[in-house]
Amino acid sequence: MTSSLRFRAGLVSIVLLAAFLGIWHLATRSTAPVATMSPEYAKLMGLTATQGKSAMPGPLDVGAKLWEHLKRPFYDNGPNDKGLGIQLAYSIARVGTGYLLAVLVAIPLGFLIGMSPLLSKALDPFIQVLKPISPLAWMPLALYTIKDSSVSAIFVIFICSIWPMLLNTVFGVASVRKEWINVARTLEVGTIRRAFTVILPAAAPTILTGMRISIGIAWLVIVAAEMLVGGTGIGYFVWNEWNNLSITNVIIAILLIGIVGMLLDQILARFTRMVTFPE
C-alpha cells in the first residue's frame, strides 16, 4: 500500500511537471508571421521582433543551455565568465564557513544560556533586538569594519544563521525532562559529564532542528548577499546574467539554487534523524 501510494504520487508529480513544461513551451513559442524586412535589420532586431518570439526562453532553450553548463561546470574564462560549478562552489564555501562559525558560537552559548536562568534573563533583551534585524542590514557595517567584501558576505551568513540555532539550543537545553536531570543528580554526575551525557543527547533533536532552519536561511541570504558584494558566487551570477539580459541563465541559476538548497536541507534532515530517539 505504501509503495503503491508512493508510485501514484510519483506519477502525479511527473504529470504535473509535464503539464507545466507543456504550458511553458506553448506560451513562449513563436506565433506571429515572419515580418518582411531586410535580413541585416532582422538580424539586428533578433527573433523577438522578426518572428514574434517571446523574450521569455522556452523549456527547450533552457534545457539546451543547461546541458551546455553541465558539460563544462568548472571553466574559468576570467572574472565575468566562470562555470556554474565554480559559482556554486563559491556560494557553498561562503555558506559553509559562515554557518560553521555560527555553529561554534551558537551551540556553546545556547548551552550556557539554557543552563543558567541568570544569563537567560540577562541576554534576552539583546537577542530579542538583534534577532529581527535583516542580515543584509549588517552589510554596510560589515563592509566598513571588515573592509573585505568576501569576508563581509561570510559575516552576513554568520549573523543570519546564528539566531535559529541559538534559540533552539536554549530551548532544547532548558526543556530537558526534569527526571533525566534528576537521574544524573542521584548518580552524582558532574556538571560537564551531565552536559555531555544527558543534556546534549536530550536536546540534540531540538538543536538539529534549529540547525536545519539556519542552513535554509543561510542559503536564502547568500544569493542576496552575493548580488550586493559581487565578484563570484551564484547570487552574483544571477545578477550578472540579468545585466546580460540572459533570462535563460537566470532560470538555470534559479533551478540550481533550489536544488542545492534542497540538498543542504536533506543533509541536515538526515543528521536530525540520526540523533532523534523514540520515547
Binding site: 534528576n182 543527547p201 530517539f277
Partner: peptide, 18 residues
C-alpha cells in the same frame, strides 16, 4: 545533596531513551 548511597526508583522509570 544527592548521594550514590541512596538510589531512587522513579515513578515514571526515567530511563534515558537514547
Amino acid at each position: 545533596g544527592t548521594s550514590l548511597d541512596r538510589a531512587v526508583i522513579f515513578q515514571s522509570h526515567a530511563l534515558l531513551p537514547w
